[in-house]
Design a protein around this nucleic acid. Structure first.
Length: 606
DNA sequence: CCCCCCCC
């Protein structure tokens, strides 16, 4: 049996806490646990048997988040924890009212496996009848928020204590402000007091299940954060009313499982606003009593270490702003607008941030402001990284936070002139490796998913002119081959519509020889225009004139150029074949190429 | 009740 002297349990702490007192940083032992499955969700809450060495108490609960921090699989039996934040509540059960201790924040002091059993001989604690008051309401809260005349199914905070700043400024008498982290679908009477840390624009949708509009907003208090969504007429009621950064009382609403795929907020549930929801601005607390939105900024130079698709918070000085670009999304055919903003941070690294829609149109950034984005997505294209805002992202210019002042100061002192590494630069060295066709084959390049890139100096031997021009969809961004309907219309199956016209595009196979072997490769439109020195439209005008087409092909053949290629092994009918795509054709830079040859000679001669 | 988050 463990020696009680070895473990400083806070004897008597349970008595203090359960009588409504404050006991900061109580050290207690967890003697047992029981998972309480909350029905719909895949997460569970944990009910624990707690001991302070003098008493035990079995109506103690850990929130999922707290439990997760107490060990890889949550708290173990016999583990010793330090309780930093908690609330006590009265709830109804089969035998009347029972007191519940909800632990909001705790640290692991000693792992359960290191403690050999129960410490001391604690006795079960018994409540000597300290019922909480229940006929009060919150000062300043919406009038329609009524305290239940008797406690029904909701835990009611009898005294939020220990480091819960909610209580220091609370001038309500013994009733019901709930920490956000305690909200579950199984209690429908609650009031939270929280800051709106962000809200989305109104979005309308239309699909097979109907149509409507919605917006969502994020709430933050001392205990945690949660996303709320309002639909249809409730959008009109609350969208303009709610202002980012302000503090509100919110009561009632439907709790449902949060889909983690679409939110990075650390809460198991989300709130759907309904007709019972009351929201009123809170003017009776100091602004500093409710935490500000918290950022977890990732220095730009650490972004390459993160997985593509990760959502991060970013801060950077605007170094330059790109043009507004309008194009059609291939997948939805919707017209999209984007603008790339290049940001720099104190790691002397730049990265492009892509803004969309109205954000892109409205973005104007004179005098190198600091941009802060909560919830930007990491993207990758052509070997370069970029950030992109999502509808759920929150962007602000020059927010009044210390990181912003620090970065601005750095930029003015030195950052504006520093030579920065650009994360958004595409490819470059992935394709810079010189190799011959023979080396590519011998070394079996092209095994990887993305293929392997290399450059070689080669000569165009054959340009396959049959079908090297096709009739493509005329819409700006779609280059799909169209179907001639024979009635003057051309059908694009990708756009799913017919057009009265088409545009010419190139797609061809060419055979290239370098000084080791020759290789068939696919060449796309822009590179073919380059080698022919003519546009597809110009060639298209003369497509019936075989002789002229032959002349065009002949003029382009036997030219020596640099071919940047992607090699990828693909399997057809169980047979692996090397597929080569030429992604770029350039004239030979003899200075660079000679250097490569000199290096080769030096390697051969040692 | 959305849940798409886009492009080169």
């Amino acid at each position: 049996m463990p020696n009680p002297q070895d473990y400083n349990l806070s004897e008597g702490a349970l008595e203090t806490i359960l009588s409504g007192g404050d006991y900061p940083s109580a050290v207690m032992q967890v003697l047992g646990k029981k998972l309480i499955h909350s029905g719909a969700g895949d997460k569970e809450r944990v009910r624990i048997l707690l001991s302070d060495g003098k008493h035990t108490f079995s109506y103690a609960m850990l929130t999922t988040q707290v439990n997760g921090r107490l060990g890889p699989n949550g708290i173990e039996d016999n583990g010793i924890i330090r309780i930093e934040k908690y609330i006590t509540s009265m709830v109804n059960n089969s035998t009347g009212q029972a007191r519940v201790l909800l632990i909001l924040e705790a640290d692991l002091v000693v792992a359960g496996s290191e403690v050999k059993g129960k410490i001391g001989t604690p006795e079960p604690w018994t409540d000597k009848g300290t019922a909480n008051s229940s006929s009060s309401r919150i000062n300043g809260a919406p009038k329609k928020v009524e305290t239940p005349s008797k406690v029904v199914d909701s835990p009611v905070i009898s005294k939020p204590i220990s480091k819960v700043s909610m209580d220091t400024s609370m001038n309500f008498d013994g009733s019901l402000i709930h920490p956000i982290s305690s909200l579950t679908p199984y209690q429908n009477r609650w009031v939270i007091r929280a800051r709106v840390t962000g809200k989305t624009p109104v979005k309308t949708w239309s699909n097979s299940r109907g149509e409507g509009k919605l917006f969502s907003f994020d709430l933050l208090d001392e205990s945690g954060e949660i996303r709320c969504t309002a639909f249809r007429d409730l959008v009109d009621k609350f969208h303009d009313f709610l202002q980012v950064d302000k503090i509100y009382y919110i009561s009632k609403g439907q709790l449902k499982m949060a889909n983690k795929q679409f939110s990075t907020l650390k809460h198991e549930y989300e709130i759907t606003i309904n007709n019972d929801t009351q929201i009123q601005e809170c003017k009776d607390v100091k602004d500093s009593d409710i935490p500000q939105v918290q950022y977890n900024f990732v220095p730009f130079d650490k972004i390459p270490e993160l997985e593509v698709g990760t959502i991060i918070d970013a801060i950077g000085v605007v170094k330059s702003v790109g043009e507004l670009i309008t194009f059609q999304a291939k997948s939805t055919q919707r017209e999209l607008k984007k603008k790339d903003v290049t940001l720099i941070d104190q790691s002397s690294t730049t990265i492009d941030l892509t803004l969309w829609g109205a954000d892109a149109e409205n973005f104007d950034a004179p005098n190198n402001p600091v941009v802060v984005v909560k919830g930007a997505k990491i993207n990758e294209f052509g070997g370069g990284k970029s950030l992109s805002t999502l509808v759920s992202s929150n962007m602000s210019l020059n927010p009044e936070i210390k990181e912003c002042y620090r970065l601005k100061g750095w930029y003015e002192r030195e950052g504006g002139a520093v030579e920065a590494k650009n994360l958004s630069a595409r490819s470059g060295n992935v394709a810079s490796k010189w190799m011959t066709f023979k080396e590519v084959k011998d070394q079996k390049l092209g095994q990887s998913e993305k293929g392997d890139y290399y450059r070689t100096v080669g000569t165009i031997l054959i340009i396959k002119a049959e079908n090297f021009l096709y009739q493509a969809c005329p819409s700006a961004e779609c280059n799909k081959k169209v179907l001639d309907m024979g009635n003057g219309m051309y059908k694009c199956e990708k756009c799913n519509r017919e057009y009265p016209n088409f545009k010419h595009r190139f797609l061809a196979s060419i055979n290239v020889g370098d000084n080791t072997a020759n290789q068939w490769m696919t060449l796309f439109h822009p590179e073919i225009e380059k080698i022919l020195g003519m546009t597809a439209e110009e060639v298209g005008q003369q497509i019936e004139n075989k002789e002229e087409i032959n002349n065009i092909i002949e003029r382009a053949t036997f030219r020596e150029l640099i071919f940047t290629c992607r090699a990828k092994i693909e399997t057809y009918n169980d047979e692996a074949r090397l597929k080569t795509v030429c992604i770029r054709i350039e004239p030979i830079d003899y200075e660079e190429y000679n250097q490569y040859l000199v290096d080769q000679i030096q390697q051969l001669t040692g």
